[in-house]
Every structure is written in structure tokens, then in C-alpha cells.
Computed example of a mutant assay.
Amino acid sequence: MLPSVRRAARSAARGRAGEPRTVAGMTDETPQVRNDEGEQRWVAELDGQVAGYAEYTRDGGTVTFTHTVVDEAFEGRGVGSALARTALDDVRDQGGSKVVAQCSFIAGWIDKHPDYQDLLA
């Protein structure tokens, strides 16, 4: 997919700040992901329940992902990938921000998706 098309697809999937949004290209059982800035975590909901979250800290233009959790009941349903993709897309859309992947899940996800490696600090 061309970068401009990918950006347009991400923008179309994005709601206003803090509102849940569906990750493009996933099924009807796609987790709804929102940024809970007060708790400094991205939260994924599926079937009306919290299915997982990715915690972060922010220091100026650097977002450090510290821990990701997916509830066992929702494993294998794309929750972790939805969290990673949505959070990293948001960092990219902020422009100029960089990522430190202290969390092994986020680090591994970035390794498997080379088009996100440019975000690494």
C-alpha cells in the first residue's frame, strides 16, 4: 500500500482524541482502541470489555512503551496488534515524536513491521 493511502486509511479509522476507533483491515471483531491519557495507557475493548492495554510515559517528544497486557480470554484475537498499530500510528501522526520500546511486545511488533522502525528513538 502506498504511504499516502496508508495515511488516509489510518486517518479514516481515527476518531477524536480519546474516542475508540477500529483498526483498518481487521474483522468485525476488531478491538476498539482509545488513548486514556490520564492513565497513560492505550486501552483495547472487545465485546464490551477491556481486553488489554499498552502503558506508556511521555517525555517531550518521546513516548516510551513500558508494558502491554492482553487478557487471556482475548488472546489470539488481534488485541495486541491493534494496540501496537493504533498507538504507533498516533505517535507518527503527532509528527516529530519518537518511540522507546521498553516493552518486549511493542519492540517485537516493531521488529516484525519494518514500516514502523523509523519511529524508534
Results as ranks from 00 to 15, higher is better:
residue 13 A to M: 09
residue 102 Q to N: 15
residue 29 E to Y: 01
residue 76 G to Y: 09
residue 73 A to D: 02
residue 42 W to C: 00
residue 20 P to H: 11
residue 94 Q to D: 06
residue 72 E to P: 12
residue 24 A to W: 04
residue 50 V to W: 00
residue 21 R to S: 13
residue 76 G to K: 14
residue 65 F to V: 01
residue 13 A to K: 01
residue 81 S to W: 00
residue 119 L to N: 03
residue 28 D to I: 07
residue 93 D to Y: 11
residue 105 F to P: 03
residue 54 A to H: 06
residue 86 T to S: 11
residue 121 A to T: 10
residue 4 S to I: 15
residue 52 G to V: 13
residue 19 E to H: 07
residue 61 G to Q: 08
residue 115 D to Q: 14
residue 121 A to N: 08
residue 54 A to M: 13
residue 98 K to M: 08
residue 28 D to S: 15
residue 36 D to A: 14
residue 101 A to T: 06
residue 74 F to I: 05
residue 5 V to L: 15
residue 114 P to G: 12
residue 49 Q to N: 06
residue 90 D to Q: 14
residue 101 A to Q: 07
residue 25 G to M: 02
residue 38 G to E: 12
residue 105 F to K: 04
residue 29 E to M: 11
residue 40 Q to Y: 07
residue 26 M to K: 12
residue 20 P to Q: 13
residue 58 R to A: 12
residue 83 L to D: 01
residue 33 V to F: 11
residue 101 A to K: 00
residue 103 C to Y: 09
residue 76 G to Q: 12
residue 85 R to V: 08
residue 11 S to D: 14
residue 10 R to A: 11
residue 94 Q to V: 12
residue 32 Q to G: 10
residue 70 V to C: 06
residue 83 L to W: 03
residue 107 A to S: 09
residue 32 Q to E: 14
residue 110 I to H: 05
residue 33 V to W: 05
residue 95 G to A: 14
residue 6 R to E: 14
residue 70 V to H: 02
residue 65 F to D: 05
residue 42 W to L: 05
residue 29 E to R: 12
residue 108 G to W: 00
residue 26 M to D: 15
residue 88 L to S: 04
residue 69 V to A: 03
residue 94 Q to I: 08
residue 11 S to Q: 14
residue 94 Q to G: 13
residue 96 G to R: 03
residue 103 C to K: 04
residue 43 V to I: 14
residue 71 D to P: 06
residue 38 G to K: 12
residue 15 G to A: 14
residue 109 W to I: 06
residue 88 L to H: 04
residue 98 K to A: 12
residue 111 D to Y: 03
residue 14 R to N: 03
residue 62 T to D: 00
residue 105 F to A: 05
